[in-house]
Design a protein around this nucleic acid. Structure first.
Lengths: 121, 121
DNA sequence: CCGTATCCGTAAGGATACTG
DNA sequence: CAGTATCCTTACGGATACGG
C-alpha cells in the first residue's frame, strides 16, 4: 500500500491542521465538547460551510468525533479524540507564544494593513 | 494608535506563521542560517516567488533577518531573530507530534487522495 | 546567484437561500 | 438546529521569462 511521505514532522502536522480554521476549531474543542451552533459562535468569523467542511476533514483524520443524538430538533456534539487531544497538547506552546507576543504582532500587522491601504488608494 | 486584536493566542500565532510555507521556512532556519538558494533546495516544493514573498513578510514581522553581503555574484543569508527563535521553540512540540504520527497521517491522507481520484474519474 | 515581473488556473473561502 | 446547495470573488500559488 502506498503511503504519503513527509520530509519533517511539521509537514505532517500541517497536513492535519493546515488552513485557516482547523487550529482554531481544535482549540475551541480542547477543553470541552461543543454543539455545532456553539462552535459556530465560538470560532469567530467562520461560516457554516467552512465549519462543517473542516469538521468532516478533521473527523476523517481521526482528531474529532461526531456524536449525533438523533433528536428533533437536531442535536450534534463534536469532541476531540485522544489523538486530537495529543495534538492540542502539542499546540499549546504555540498558543502561549501567541498570547505572550499578541500586542507586538497586532501592532505590526496593523501597520502592514495600513500600508496596503495606502497602496490601493 | 489602532492595534489588531485576537481572541486567542493561536490566532495571533497564525497571523505570523499562517499559510502553506512559513512554518517550513522557519524550521529550515531553526538550526542554521541559510542562503537563498540553500533555502530553496531545503524547503522542498517551494517556488522562488513564494520563498522571497514569505521571507519578506517574515522579515517585516521580525522573525527573520536578512544579511546581504553585497558581493558579486550575490550572496544573501537569512537567519532567525531571537523573536524567531522563540517561535521555533514554540513550534517544536508540534514538529515532534508530527514526527511521531507521521505514518498514521500519511496513510489516512493517501486514502483521501485516492478517494478524490475516484470521484473525478 | 538572487531576485522581479507577468501571466494564469485553481481552490479556498464568503454570502445567501433553502431543507429535514 | 444542523446542515446542503449554489453562486461568486479573490488571493494563493505555480510556471515561465527576464534583470542586476
Amino acid at each position: 500500500m502506498k503511503r504519503k511521505t513527509y520530509s519533517c514532522g511539521l509537514e505532517a502536522a500541517l497536513d492535519v491542521v493546515g488552513g485557516k480554521w482547523k487550529v482554531l476549531i481544535l482549540w475551541a474543542l480542547h477543553d470541552e465538547r461543543r454543539r455545532f451552533g456553539d462552535l459556530r459562535r465560538t470560532v469567530s468569523g467562520i461560516s457554516e460551510k467552512m465549519l462543517i467542511q473542516n469538521l468532516k476533514e478533521m473527523e476523517a483524520d481521526g482528531i474529532v468525533i461526531r456524536h449525533d443524538f438523533r433528536e428533533i430538533p437536531p442535536r450534534v456534539e463534536y469532541a476531540l479524540t485522544s489523538f486530537g487531544i495529543s495534538l492540542s497538547a502539542a499546540l499549546s506552546p504555540l498558543c502561549e507564544w501567541g498570547q505572550l507576543h499578541m500586542a507586538r504582532i497586532g501592532a505590526v500587522k496593523e501597520e502592514e494593513e495600513e500600508a496596503r491601504g495606502r497602496i490601493e488608494a
